[in-house]
Structure formats: structure tokens, C-alpha cells
Write a protein that binds this DNA or RNA. Structure first.
Length: 431
RNA sequence: GCCGGGGUGGGGUAAUGGACAUCCUUGGGGACUGUGGAUCCCUUGACCCGGGUUCGAUUCCCGGUCCCGGCCCCA
């Protein structure tokens, strides 16, 4: 870029994405399918600011999170952050209206931000779909949320390429305490690393939590394989010193799993290594995984019964999940499903030179009134050039002085190349 | 925050320590008067940024930046 051109070159900010029309067309189609599925379940859409007080996140996650957010002090001296996730905002909206009739079913599809190094399927800004159900704490609603999640994946054509892995924070805590491990948070973060680190370093880290080798081996044994729900009780009886007190909890997990199977054919496992990073989860946690194991979790969520209490003092049971657009895009592209699939019928109106615009505009407006797409070519170019612009459309319409004189429409199917002349009235009827 | 690999017109590419930087596509103009979704001709347009080595750097070296990927972390 020569200086004499007096241009400045602005590059895209690291980790952010541009979306051109050919990309947006597909993206919008996918997003619409996702939100329509939520609507079909009776979930209502909400939205909230992209900027929140940093305190909203300090409440539940500690100060380390600050390093991974886009945070700054605004001109009014407020410590604010680009929202890194939707759940705290969602709960803020819920608790700000006292006495909302329960249950509340809400979804949102905001952009969220995180300050980290971009890599496959991870950007500093991405879209994240969220769905939450407030006011009920039962296996049935746990299953509904998971069922909504699977219905969304299934509706995108991803059936059979993912599985659901379930765990329960309450159960985990019980097990760890039963094995005399009391530093629960640290234990969680070690367990979260189980599939990434060696057995030796796993043992080493647990020893630092004063766990004895016998119990560590029990944990490893329990972590080593995903379980189907039926074998869970047997496994736990062997593992735990005191099984009785946790029996109801196991039953609930089994029920949840059974109910989820009414929504989807997808495999549901119990997986003790599913921990989820957020500290506010209190019960069931779940993730959908690509069965090839190549990608990170496709979506994840869980029950968080005390976040509302933290924010407002009001006790509101809650469960939800989140789904990022980046991983979905990777998956769909891998399955050759990243394509527009809900496109309206489209017309390209070629307007020949010297034609009064009234007639073509009238035709375009008639088309648009029937919920179809009409685009007018006012370039005055030669017909072949206009037809070239029409390539992406289903039909082209040619309007010249002949058509105006005869009150007719020349309609060309751009795929079959078939062409016919209709009267204006017949054309309108054909829409 | 760390590590590796990259960066040539709008998109896709070729070559090069030295002269007009290749080809395709797209854009613009023209040939050809409403169907040639063309063809032909002309044309606009690029070596990521800064510094160093050199007579001379797009090319070699260093730093930055962005892209791709991996780690850390994971919302």
C-alpha cells in the first residue's frame, strides 16, 4: 500500500471472524433450525447486554476468570466485561423480576467472548446458544433439557455421530468424601484432567490431596470406562463404603437417562470424568461428545440450583446447557452438512434498458408479498450480463418493452433453462 | 501467556538477491440491437508491517502483526 494512496490498512482483530454473505446464508439457516427447535419445546427467547459488571462473574468463579475475559474499566469507572457466558445474565434477568410464574423456559443466542489463544473450533468471539429451565428440580426436567439438546443436534442431521455423557456433581462429591477426599474442588480439577495426563501424574496429584493409594486406585478404576446406566449401581456398591445413602441419587440418574431415551436414539453413558469447568453446578452435568473423539465437547450443561440464591437470595432450581457455533460448524462441515437448507424461492428481475421502473418494481413487490425473494437489476447492462448475476437465483424474470406492451412476464428457470411467457395475472397466480 | 508452521492483486496461485512479478478468476470498459447465464479484445488491482544485512530484499536475518494448528485454560 503506497503512502501516496493515503490508505491505512486495518487488520482483523485476532481471534475474531468475518462472515460474508455466502457464509451467513448457511449460518443463518443453521441458527434458525436451532432456535426453531427450542421454540417447538415452548422456550421463549430472551436477550441481554453484551457488557456486564465483572462482579457478576466474580460471584461464582473466582478471580482467575478475569484473566480470560475481555474486561476493562469504562469511562464511568465501572469494572465491566464482555460477557463470557450467558447463564449469569439469564439468572440476573430471572431474579430481577420477582415471582416469575414457574416453570420458566428461556433460550438465548448471544455472542460471547473469551480472551484465549485461538485454535481449532475456538475463537475469541463466538455465538453460543443457551437454553435454561427454572423452577423445577426433577429427573423429568433434567431429561427435557438434555432432550432439547439432543433434539437440536438430531435436527441438524448429527444423529449417530455424537453421544451423551452424564455425571452428577452431588454424586461425585459424595463418592470423594466417602473415599476420604475432602478437597473437592481440587479433586474435580484433577479428575477433569484424567484423560489428558498419565496415570502416574494422576496418582501423584491425588496423593497431594492426602488420598491413599487404595482409594486412588478405586477412583481410577471408576474413571477408566464409561458405564451404561444399568451397571452403575453394581459398580458403586463395590466402590463405596456406604452405598445406601446415595441410592436415591443413583435412581434419579437412571431415571433421567431413561427419560432422555424417549427423546433420542443417541447413546447415553455415565462418565465420571465429565466434570465441567463451572463451579456453580450442583447436580447432573452432561456433555455431548463427537464419537470419533476428535473434537472437544459439542455442548455441555448441568443443574445449578444455587446461582439464583447467590444473586438474589431467592431459591430457584435451574438447569441449562450451552452450545457454541464453532464446534457445530466443524462437525457439520465434516459431515458435509454445512449448507443452506431453508432458503426461500428467489427471483432475479432483469430490467432491460429504457424501461420505466414501475412495472418491474410492481412485479418484485408482488413476489415479496408472497414471502419469496425478489432482486431487481437496475444496472442497464446487456441481458447476458444480467443473466449471469441471476445464476444464484431460482428464477429470472426478463422485463423489456415487449413485456410492458403486452402486460406479460418472461419467466426463466435458472436450473432447467426452461423459459416461458406468462400474462401478468397468470404469473401472480403462479406465486 | 508459551510453542510450531505460514502470509504474493478481492478470491485461488507461479516464480525470483537485480529489468514490466506468472497464470486463472472476479471487477471495469469495448466488440455483437432481448436470452450468447457466453466468446474475443482492452483494463484496474498484490510481494503483511518495521528494522537489519546488501550496490540492490518480495526473496536472507531479527522483531511485530494476523492466519492455521498444538499447549495452558476452559465459560
Amino acid at each position: 500500500m503506497a503512502d501516496s494512496d493515503n490508505k491505512i490498512k486495518i487488520e482483523k482483530i485476532k481471534g475474531f471472524r468475518d462472515h460474508y454473505p455466502e457464509d451467513m446464508e448457511i449460518r443463518h439457516s443453521i441458527f434458525t433450525r436451532i432456535t426453531e427447535t427450542a421454540e417447538d419445546f415452548g422456550y421463549k427467547r430472551i436477550d441481554f447486554p453484551s457488557l456486564e459488571y465483572l462482579d457478576l462473574y466474580k460471584l461464582k468463579s473466582g478471580s482467575e476468570l478475569v484473566n480470560q475475559t475481555f474486561s476493562f474499566v469504562d469511562k464511568g469507572g465501572r469494572e465491566v466485561t464482555m460477557i463470557p457466558e450467558a447463564t449469569p445474565s439469564t439468572v440476573r434477568l430471572l431474579t430481577a423480576r420477582k415471582g416469575m410464574p414457574k416453570p420458566v423456559r428461556w433460550y438465548s443466542f448471544p455472542k460471547v467472548w473469551r480472551y484465549e489463544e485461538p485454535q481449532e473450533g475456538r475463537f475469541r468471539e463466538h455465538y453460543q446458544f443457551n437454553a435454561d429451565l427454572f423452577g423445577i428440580d426433577s429427573a423429568k426436567v433434567d431429561a427435557e433439557i438434555i432432550g432439547l439438546a439432543t433434539s437440536i443436534l438430531d435436527s441438524l442431521g448429527l444423529s449417530g455421530i455424537y453421544e451423551i455423557n452424564i455425571n452428577d456433581r452431588y454424586l461425585m462429591e459424595y463418592i470423594l468424601k466417602d473415599l476420604n477426599i475432602n478437597d473437592i474442588n481440587n479433586a474435580f480439577s484433577i479428575i477433569d484432567k484424567y484423560r489428558k495426563i498419565s496415570r502416574d501424574s494422576f496418582v501423584e496429584m491425588f496423593r497431594k490431596l492426602d488420598a491413599n493409594d487404595e482409594n486412588i486406585n478405586k477412583i481410577i478404576d471408576f474413571l477408566s470406562e464409561k458405564l451404561d446406566m444399568n451397571s452403575l449401581p453394581k459398580k458403586l456398591k463395590k466402590l463405596l463404603n456406604n452405598y445406601k445413602n446415595i441410592e436415591d441419587r443413583i435412581k434419579r440418574i437412571q431415571e433421567t437417562s431413561e427419560y432422555v431415551s424417549y427423546y433420542t436414539q443417541s447413546t447415553i453413558n455415565f462418565d465420571f470424568s465429565v466434570v465441567r469447568g463451572l463451579s456453580y453446578y450442583t447436580g447432573i452435568v452432561f456433555e455431548a461428545f463427537d464419537i470419533t473423539g476428535k473434537l472437544r465437547a459439542i455442548l455441555g450443561g448441568g443443574r445449578y440450583n444455587n446461582l439464583a440464591t447467590l444473586l438474589s437470595g431467592e431459591d430457584i432450581p435451574a438447569i441449562g446447557f450451552a452450545l457454541g457455533d464453532a464446534v457445530i460448524e466443524l462437525l457439520l462441515k465434516r459431515q458435509n452438512l454445512w449448507e443452506r437448507n431453508m432458503r426461500k424461492v428467489s427471483y432475479y428481475v432483469c430490467v432491460l434498458n429504457d424501461v420505466n421502473p414501475e412495472y418491474p418494481i410492481t412485479i418484485a413487490q408482488k413476489i415479496r408479498k408472497t414471502n419469496k425473494i425478489a432482486s431487481l437489476d437496475f444496472t442497464g447492462r446487456k441481458l447476458p450480463a444480467q443473466l449471469k448475476s441471476a445464476t444464484d437465483f431460482d428464477y429470472s424474470i426478463i422485463i423489456g418493452n415487449d413485456e410492458i406492451k403486452n402486460n406479460s412476464v418472461t419467466l426463466k428457470n435458472m436450473k432447467t433453462v426452461e423459459q416461458k411467457v406468462l400474462s401478468f395475472d397468470d404469473f401472480i397466480k403462479s406465486l
